[in-house]
Simulated assay, not measured.
Amino acid sequence: MHKSDESPHHNGKRARLSKRAPPKPTSGAREGGERPRLLFVDDEENIRLTLPVLLEQHGFDVTSVAAVADALAQISTVSFDVLLADLNIHREGDGFLVIAAMRRAQPRCKNFILTGYPGLENAVRAIQNHLDDYFTKPADLEDLVAKIKARLAAPAAKPVRLAAVFMENEREIAGKILEAIKRDAVLRKARLDDRKRVDHLPLIFQAVIARLMHEGRPLIPHDLQFAARHGRRRKKDGYTAAMLVREFQVIGETVYDLLGGDLLPLGVVELTSDLKLLIQSLNIFTLVSFEAYARAK
């Protein structure tokens, strides 16, 4: 897919492109704390000269950058309400990389894509990447502004605790973890059937769910006893110490990778405290299991 050679034209609603040098990236600071902060990413300097100015006139505080790396730097240091990124910044589809980074770092940000090609493939990928909307170049300014403001004005989705997601999707999450275990270079060496690879997961999920629902209460003796039994069992199963540790790592990595997907949609799951408790719980399970593994004969 290549950049379109057509430049948006000005008819009262379209952005006019000019030949001036591109502006330096703005700071992204709010004026009076009221203007929505918008990150605009496009490597076409003509569009960077015109569209941000027009968006500023419609009440946005715009930071404009030309490269994926610059966008990632902004995302890591500045809080944004809206991301508007070109589909093909330097390479085909790399606008989705910026969207993915924003969704992980700032899940409440509204995400939009600009594309010169309105094909079905782009629409499907937009849906898969949980975009709020996408616009075809040359974008109709009034339509673009109206849709962005409508998204900003829409009620925020009520956060769902990670415990509820685990309870509702336990089998699906366990299936994803099994797939990851069977792909892992360390764990796939274990000569176990699929059931034995993951039959410990329900008890891990139960312990994590209990901690999440009770605001981070300590793991109870029953949970720690289970972890110790699991360590001794893995010794009998022929696991090395590295395999035992890796097993718990894969659980955490898989849940993290699922964030933003259909099972654990970013912007819906309340991440900060819940994810911290999940990681803490897995770390405790790892330590207790490892100690029992080391003592087992």
Results as ranks from 00 to 15, higher is better:
Lys3Val: 03
His10Trp: 14
Asn11Pro: 02
Asn11Arg: 06
Ser18Asn: 06
Pro22Asp: 00
Ser27Asn: 11
Glu34His: 05
Glu34Arg: 14
Arg37Ile: 02
Leu39Asn: 03
Asp42Asn: 02
Asn46Arg: 09
Ile47Met: 02
Leu49Ile: 01
Thr50Gly: 09
Leu51His: 00
Leu51Val: 10
Gln57Pro: 03
Asp61Gly: 07
Ser76Val: 00
Val78Lys: 10
Ser79Gln: 14
Phe80Val: 07
Val82Ala: 03
Leu83Asp: 07
Asp86Leu: 02
Ile89Arg: 00
His90Gly: 11
Glu92Lys: 14
Leu97Gln: 08
Ala100Asp: 13
Ala101Tyr: 03
Gln106Ile: 09
Arg108Asn: 07
Leu114Pro: 04
Gly119Val: 04
Gly119Tyr: 13
Ile127Val: 14
Ile127Gln: 11
Asn129Pro: 00
Asp132Cys: 13
Tyr134Trp: 13
Lys137Trp: 09
Asp140Arg: 07
Ala153Thr: 11
Ala154Ile: 03
Lys158Gly: 03
Lys158His: 15
Ala164Arg: 15
Glu170Cys: 10
Gly175Asp: 10
Ile177Ala: 10
Leu178Asn: 09
Ile181Val: 12
Arg183Val: 04
Asp184Lys: 07
Arg188Ile: 11
Arg191Gln: 09
Pro202Ser: 09
Val208Asn: 02
His214Arg: 15
Arg229Asp: 14
Gly231Tyr: 02
Tyr239Cys: 08
Val250Leu: 04
Gly252Gln: 10
Thr254Ala: 10
Val255Met: 14
Asp262Met: 03
Val269Thr: 02
Val269Phe: 04
Glu270Gly: 08
Asp274Leu: 01
Asp274Gly: 01
Leu278Gln: 07
Ser281Ile: 08
Ile284Gln: 15
Phe290Asp: 07
Glu291Ala: 12
